[in-house]
């Protein structure tokens, strides 16, 4: 296991004015949901920070709260308590739409079930993030470049349904990196792929990550995949049971 670098800030008192402000920081994150009228605590008091360019794997059995944590870190939902600071912005102070704009600027996603928009071609899927920022002209060039980069040149006009799982995930990768995000969230990116295809996708993801210096947050329960991260946080029952950086 690769030890965490010395610049890791995991103390809650780290100042926002610090020049070494981490890319992603969460403090005392707690999340509950209503289920059948009863309150269900899915995350309890999670605190950690991740420096820019870092690579963290969040692991744990299913139901341990991995996806919920990912959703909160990416601003897809609001926590019951605690806060998330992404690139210096406190997500709790932002409205739903402001968080969306922040995602359009800084965040990329790769999902277990790809989540390509079925009515758009591969190329159009890749173009969406840049187009959302109003950079239509750049979007086309970037899509060409990324299609080539993920080995799908000439397949840009295909719809997701016409692509294999691995191909779809490569398109999803291209989409995730198209706007050069500061943070990439990956939720079980190989979960729906066979081993060989999964390895290709992970290889691509690592390369792109290195090239762009993206901060990477990976949710997985695959130990081999997690082992590639520089730091591992293990969750169980909604709480951190192990943090390799703290170890």
């Amino acid at each position: 296991m690769i030890p965490g670098p010395a610049t890791t800030f995991d103390a809650p008192e780290a100042s926002v004015l610090n020049v070494n402000e981490p890319m992603l920081r969460c403090e005392s994150l707690t999340q509950t949901y209503l289920s059948g009228g009863r309150e269900l605590t899915v995350l309890k008091n999670i605190t950690f920070a991740l420096e820019a360019g870092g690579f963290i794997a969040i692991v744990g059995p299913s139901g341990s709260g991995k996806s919920t944590l990912l959703g909160l870190l990416a601003g897809l939902d609001r926590p019951r308590a605690g806060r998330v600071v992404l690139d210096g912005r406190d997500l709790g102070t932002l409205s739903e739409d402001e968080r969306a704009r922040l995602r359009a600027e800084k965040v990329g996603f790769v999902f277990q079930s790809f989540h390509l928009i079925p009515t758009l071609t591969a190329r159009e899927n890749i173009q969406v993030p840049l187009e959302l920022r109003g950079e239509e002209a750049a979007a086309r060039a970037r899509a060409d470049e990324l299609l080539a980069r993920v080995g799908l040149e000439g397949r840009g006009h295909h719809y997701p349904a016409q692509l294999s799982g691995g191909e779809q995930q490569r398109v999803a990768l291209a989409r995730a990196f198209s706007h050069r995000p500061a943070v990439l969230f990956a939720d079980e990116p190989t979960g729906n792929l066979d081993a060989a295809t999964g390895a290709t996708v992970i290889g691509l993801m690592s390369e792109l990550n290195r090239e762009l210096g993206t901060t990477l947050v990976l949710v997985t329960h695959d130990p081999d995949l997690a082992a590639r991260a520089r730091r591992i946080i293990r969750l169980a029952d909604g709480a951190v049971v192990h943090d390799s950086a703290a170890a």
Partner: peptide
């Protein structure tokens, strides 16, 4: 997905 990618 669009919301995830940053659409308001």
């Amino acid at each position: 997905v669009l919301r995830c990618l940053g659409a308001t």
